[in-house]
């Protein structure tokens, strides 16, 4: 749902979602208003509202009338499970496609992942 190169409102929603998952905006706390996001990212205010509303529809944010926009309880888990779905599409599928082009078989691919993990640690 939050493709990197989608329309601007989707990109904004993805950025806010990133911050919620990272814990920058903890559950139950306020996030900046759509207007603040618009000025900060130098984007159209209507577009920013659309991006924020995407997360409201998803249930990750909710509006308190007259006060502002807040991170819903369970928003992190909600967004994380959404991302896991995306992970398959965005990373696994292209990985396997490229592996086929380069004639890397499954054993070798698994080996490369293990090797990389060892390098990381």
């Amino acid at each position: 749902m939050f493709a990197d190169k989608g329309p601007a409102f989707q990109q904004l929603a993805a950025k806010i979602a990133d911050e919620i998952v990272a814990g920058t905006y903890p559950e139950g706390t306020a996030v900046p208003s759509a207007t603040d996001f618009a000025v900060f990212h130098q984007m159209n205010p209507a577009t920013a509202s659309k991006g924020v509303n995407l997360l409201v529809e998803l249930g990750a944010l909710y509006k308190k009338r007259g006060i502002g926009m807040f991170v819903a309880d369970g928003a992190r888990d909600l967004l994380r499970s959404q991302r896991r779905e995306e992970f398959r599409k965005q990373y696994i599928e292209p990985l396997l496609r490229e592996a086929r082009v380069l004639e890397i078989d499954d054993t070798e691919l698994h080996h490369m992942i293990d090797e990389h993990e060892e390098d990381e640690t």
Binding site: T35, A38, V39, Q42, M43, P45
Partner: peptide, 13 residues
Amino acid sequence: RALFHDMLLRDYT
């Protein structure tokens, strides 16, 4: 250019 964008959006809102 950044100042222009900033002022346009702040004053517009």
